[in-house]
Nucleic acid binder design. Structure first.
Lengths: 310, 310
DNA sequence: ATGAGGTCATAGGCTGGAGTTATGTCCAGC
DNA sequence: GCTGGACATAACTCCAGCCTATGACCTCAT
């Protein structure tokens, strides 16, 4: 009876807003509504009301209130963990958005490929902010050629690219590897395959990004000896579109592991291992040849490059 | 002049709210403010204003508006991708929260361990919703013993547990593996180690969850032959607290790979491989012995279990 | 016991953001 | 030149969330 599902039940109406989630995290940390309120800069009654209305909205008690403070209930702990993930995504959004804005007075100008800007950079910026607060960063996203151009023109201090080699005129260091994986919808016949031969992959019509995408180049190179890539099943312009098409069962696709998070753990898409082909590409930090990064650029570089000791 | 940065610059004030992000995604999909407005159930001027104020807030133009529609700018595409991740996290929140609420008339009652409820279940619920809309699910989170109890008492239809074996009285199937990894802050000396010997790990004082946690049991078992676990450096009550302590350099810790997302890619924490020890645990779906799941429980099970063909 | 200091809840009044409808501007194509 | 789609502007309404002030309750020290 309670839910004839009024169609206005959009996500927004079922989910508390960011402010409420931030507040909840603060309450969890402090064990007190009042102190949490202080932390987020509102009054204690405001905090009390906000949490209460969140409990109403979710239909679950989140806190055990006592005159000695407030502790999370079991359900509250779970909700808090989910909220934390939302807030972390929002922090990444914020870090990225600030870099997009700052353009002018920024002390560190970064140019990065789309994939890196999308999936990796926000995290790095958060880490950088933690270590060197107040470093204003600006971000420019583009393909490898554009990144190289910016660096050589002195319009960027540090670049990040995917690809097989360091672009002409630049020095660089490999900071990570990005594996390409073949994925299909769970209903696809390949989903039950133990593993695929390179030949099968080469012959199969795939859902791909448009020509010129980095993913496609790697794939071409890796499969050249196995007869080359078959004619694509579909060519789409964004990673998201590719994921969507593959997820709805249109066919197999090849994507960067970075682009697949949620989809894999929710089993909307499943990986299909391919035997004997190395579908990796390198992620590199790059800079104009001979000009090792200094200052803020060095800070960011050392954040990202630690693993390879660069 | 424009920004003497009023200290009220909390996350909430710098980041657009969920509604705005959902709207932006709709605009990206439809290529038109008006149609996006219709999709999210608001008027065209409202949508126009919302996007405009988001652009003001971020200081970046997101759309190229023309009398023929609206397309994302380059920056807009990036912002949209970041927004998508926030919205996805919010959807997971929503899926989980609904399961927490529904208690009453739910057709599928799930009991799950904390780790699974926290990291995996929301994704499964989203997938389940996509395949079987309208399945009301209720969730109860607890440790393995609690899950078993619920199932045997007929208070839950399907359970998910971590651990080395299927609990007494239940049948089950392994649906995935969860690797435990040793992680340290990037500044820790281990961060530069190629790999660790089991002996070193056993001897080192670690940051751990309190006694009785699943992680700790596995670790104990795996290191028993190497002299057993040393006295812990710190015992904390939540995964988050452990991550926090390790991240600020207090020492090494051992965590489920599931719990480490952001932290690894942002390099707040780095993995340290350990030679020759199998730090895995199995994630199992379980049900009362002899009563193979049917109906909605079967649907959910087949969502999660596909990979092992169960 | 009794008062101090902490926690949370309630009440009343204010404000601003976001929504709505109505209308204007601009461009493309018939 | 007119029609239709798409976005912008304007004026008005309304409610969600905030603040201050106050009350109730518990614990602990005096």
């Amino acid at each position: 009876m309670s839910s004839p599902v009024p169609p206005r039940s959009s996500l927004t109406h079922r989910v508390p807003d960011l402010g409420a989630m931030v507040l909840l995290l603060a309450v969890a940390r402090h064990g007190s509504l009042g102190r949490a309120a202080k932390e987020v800069g509102i009054s204690q009654p405001a905090a009390s009301g906000r949490i209460r209305s969140m409990e109403r909205q979710l239909g679950v008690a989140l806190l055990d209130r006592s005159p000695r403070g407030s502790r999370l209930t079991d359900a509250g702990a779970l909700v808090t963990d989910w909220a934390r993930r939302v807030v972390e995504a929002a922090e990444a959004f914020d870090a990225g958005a600030q870099a997009l804005r700052d353009r002018r007075d920024s002390r560190l100008r970064v140019a990065a490929s789309m994939t890196i800007a999308e999936y990796l950079l926000p995290g790095w910026l958060i880490a950088l902010r933690a270590e060197r607060p107040g470093t204003a960063v600006s971000l420019l996203a583009g393909n490898s050629a554009a990144v190289a151009l910016r660096l050589l023109a002195g319009e960027a201090d540090l670049g990040f690219v995917e690809g097989l080699s360091t672009p002409e005129g630049l020095d660089g260091t490999v900071i990570a590897h990005d594996r390409l994986v073949v994925v299909v919808a769970p209903s696809h016949s390949w989903a039950r395959r133990e593993r695929l031969t390179p030949g099968e992959l080469a012959e199969a019509p795939l859902i791909l990004r448009e020509h010129g995408s980095g993913t496609r180049q790697i794939l071409d190179a890796a499969l050249a000896v196995h007869g080359g890539l078959a004619r694509p099943l579909l060519e789409l312009s964004s990673t998201t579109a590719v994921k969507g098409a593959a997820g709805s069962g249109a066919g197999p696709c090849v994507l960067s592991e970075l682009a697949l998070g949620e989809e894999l753990s929710a089993r909307r898409l499943v990986k299909v291992p391919v035997a004997g082909v190395r579908l990796r590409r390198q992620l590199r930090a790059v800079w104009p040849a001979g000009h090792r990064p200094t200052g803020p650029a060095r800070d960011l570089l050392s954040l990202t490059a630690r693993e390879t000791g660069a």
